[in-house]
Amino acid sequence: MIEAVLPQASLLKKIIEAIKELVSEANFDFSETGIRLQAMDKSHIALSFLHLRNDGFSEYRCDRSQTLGINLESFSKVLKCAANDDQVQIKATDKAESLSISFESTAKDRVSEFNVKLMDIDIDSVDVPDMDYQATVNMSSQEFARIVRDMMTIGEAITIDATKQGVKFSTSGDAGEGNILLRHRKTIDEEDGPSSTSVEINEPVSHSLALKFLANFAKAAPLADRVSINLIEDAPVMFEFKISDMGHIRFYLAPQIEE
């Protein structure tokens, strides 16, 4: 038996919106400690990770570990039937064939219930080792989304250069080229404002990435004020969005390399 309650449906809506463009179907692994998901896009270029801890839910029960295969488009459609501040409960019995999702209004005078069919999904999973990143950029997620949008008007690939001075995003295309530099601030405090950027660096590092994937990652911006971009030479770049007090979404993106 699985039962999980979130006080606001908007959070679950944002989580599903953040990953459904990248993966159409995914296995949700429920255990005593919470919910985990690992999924790759069809081209195996981007890897999405979701972790939601049990203590982030207002109620959480998982009698034994269970994997639920869910079509994310269907999940998203059902979640659109919830008001943002509805309480949402998800429930599945052992060996269930569907996931029960119910919404209760804040006044508790309206309760709706939907069932989404579960499916067997055969997916490739990978082991991601702990890595010592050479550079970590911490910046506003809104700023990240804006840069991705701006760069996409020019090119298809983006180069991220992290140095002690800051982080530079650049692109080029048929129409021309462009770059945006965010200068490093030593401390992110109120004076600097929430839009400031910090770069923790051991060694300068540069990566070229396909912009269309970053546009998908930027869909997680409504979940978190900040995004961290973790870079290491010859390894996928990791983008992390923290989900308030309950977990995170991480995206790993395989780089483009010079032949």
Binding site: S125, V126, D127
Partner: peptide
């Protein structure tokens, strides 16, 4: 020219 790598080039399957 740049070539797109895959996640499998870096992370192995369990």
């Amino acid at each position: 020219a740049r070539t797109q790598t895959s996640i499998f080039s870096f992370f192995s399957t369990p």
